[in-house]
Design a protein around this nucleic acid. Structure first.
Lengths: 218, 218
DNA sequence: TTCATAATTTTGTTATCACAAAAATCATGA
DNA sequence: TCATGATTTTTGTGATAACAAAATTATGAA
């Protein structure tokens, strides 16, 4: 179940819950409740929560209240800009180190994604979509860059997770992913970057639209 | 002296020490020592240290040993690439919002920097250099971007701080800063970005060279 | 001296407790 | 019904102690 530090276990657990959309925006995360739920003491729970606040995955709305962040279009925009810059960098660097094995893996992933979308298994599609992106980003072998990008994904993932299903419906991304794969085959950094940027921007627009509609309904 | 949370106080204190180069690379930071030095309990000290480890400003070299990172050219390169991407973004966005007041402030800062360099007050020069950069970055009003950039500065600042004096000697940067100011006057985003990128790259090269020479000497 | 090993000290982690402050609940009056 | 103030509960923070494991030092043999 858990190995080593309880703080890390608590951190991973909450993070996992967040990326699975287990908590609705606004949901409170008091230390003692988290501690009880995970069967750990207050100290590891506290540490995990604070770390997630530092990373921006959770927000403090009062001196003693940490919640799952509400939809925040400003944050979404800002994170998108940072994603374009950093994932663009990772993509260009990665393309130069691409191998045929990676291309095959991406093709397989893309087939899985398409299948998942057809069968409306959005959660699976989103999971493999993330794997698709990070398979490319991992190529550049820049661990610090990678962890920064991961933090950005978590940031929007937390508050926008429940929008992803309606976001995935549109099947945006398929075309961009295929373009990215073609660019990788050609070892053409700027082509792959353009495809990935397009993917990020499409996602941003779709997510923003869904968020605006939801905000209007309430 | 300290207001509110002791953890934050401890965090800021250590961070301050790091950016001032108070600790040599390899210096150990055991919880209890830090706690005693800052006159706080173990909990705040522990929290501050862990946070700095997460951010990459300190490194864990064993299950129970946290040290100030040694010179690491790989990390320097990686952080530089991220800086180019993120500070480039901040610069372009900021340029669009530049005002004459900001230009005046930058001119004043640049005069201070030049004076400090002439009088060999490198610490002052470096401080104002940072202020110069962040005065531009603050313009875009993207707080999440800004804090990410700050973390990057801290990252290299910690292990490369004692190289900055010999780095500053060369007076690199002056020309780039002036070019940036001119670009701001013209409200020309890509001009300012080019100047800032050049500044970052010059700094990287100088720092890398100094680090290599030092590594050779030992 | 050098290296492996044993003894000792140091250290990180976690649970627990006390306290002050914040948040929630309730009561009251218009 | 709603605002407002008082009361109760909940909560984050920080100190402390116990424990296991790591780091350090001491030891001894080759």
């Amino acid at each position: 179940m858990q190995s080593g530090r309880l703080s890390d276990f608590a951190y991973s657990s909450i993070k996992e819950q967040l990326t699975r959309g287990a908590y609705k925006p606004g949901h409170k995360l008091p230390i003692r409740s988290v501690a009880e739920m995970l069967n750990v003491g207050a100290t590891p729970a506290r540490e995990a929560i604070n770390r997630l606040v530092f990373e921006g995955a959770l927000v403090m709305v009062g001196p003693k209240t940490v919640i799952v962040p509400h939809l925040d279009l400003t944050a979404l925009y800002e994170v998108t800009q940072m994603r374009l810059a950093l994932e663009g960098l990772a993509t260009e660097r990665g393309t130069l180190r691409a191998t045929n094995d990676v291309v095959d893996k991406l093709l397989a992933l893309q087939e899985k994604i398409t299948l998942s979308l057809d069968e409306r298994r959005y959660s699976d599609a989103l999971h493999d979509n993330k794997e698709f992106h990070f398979t490319i980003y991992r190529l550049c072998e820049m661990p610090r860059l990678l962890s920064t990008i991961e933090a950005l994904w978590l940031r929007v993932g937390a508050s926008f997770h429940d929008l992803y299903p309606e976001f995935a419906e549109a099947k945006y991304g398929v075309h961009n992913h295929l373009a990215a794969i073609e660019g990788l085959v050609d070892r053409d950094p700027s082509a792959v970057r353009a495809a990935m940027e397009n993917d990020i921007r499409d996602g941003y627009r779709r997510l923003k639209k869904a968020a605006q509609e939801r905000l209007k309904r309430q």
